[in-house]
Simulated scan of single mutants.
Amino acid sequence: MKKLLFSLIITFVSIDMGLCQFPHMAAAQQKPIPPYAKWGTLAMKKTQERYPYAKIIDYLHVGRVTDPKSTTEKFKLWLKDDKREFGVFVDIEFNPATNQVINITFRETTR
């Protein structure tokens, strides 16, 4: 019994010391928030409003298109309702100086 207790104490101390030696490990695993994140949140919110009976099951940031007067963030969301699964391309056009939304477009796809 003493051997088992001693083994457990050594194991816990080793684990604790390992964490103390590498405190940066947990922080290193956190990724920075991408610049399109707030637009992705808006894309999901507006898609859910447009398709209230569907569940969003996947999300992809397709890319960004920058023009002289506006920027467009492009997303593809995959939805599922009682009858089907389908994709929705969501484009959010906004003024990059003010972040004011100019237009949001939706386009369904089967792929």
Rank of each mutant, 00 (worst) to 15 (best):
M1E: 15
K2R: 10
K3M: 10
L5M: 01
F6K: 11
I9E: 03
S14M: 06
D16H: 15
M17S: 10
L19M: 02
Q21C: 14
P23V: 03
P23H: 00
H24Q: 14
M25N: 10
Q29N: 14
K31S: 06
P32G: 00
P35G: 06
A37L: 10
K38G: 05
G40H: 00
T41L: 15
M44E: 15
K45W: 07
K45H: 13
K46L: 08
T47C: 03
Y51C: 01
Y51L: 02
P52R: 14
A54H: 13
I56Y: 02
D58G: 00
H61T: 02
V65R: 13
T66F: 14
D67V: 13
D67T: 15
D67R: 15
K69H: 12
S70M: 06
T71G: 01
T72H: 04
K76W: 03
D82P: 02
K83G: 00
K83L: 07
E85R: 13
F86K: 06
G87K: 03
I92K: 08
F94A: 02
A97I: 11
T98G: 10
T98R: 01
N99D: 13
Q100H: 04
Q100I: 10
V101A: 01
N103M: 01
N103I: 09
R107S: 13
E108M: 13
T109G: 13
T110L: 11
R111Y: 10
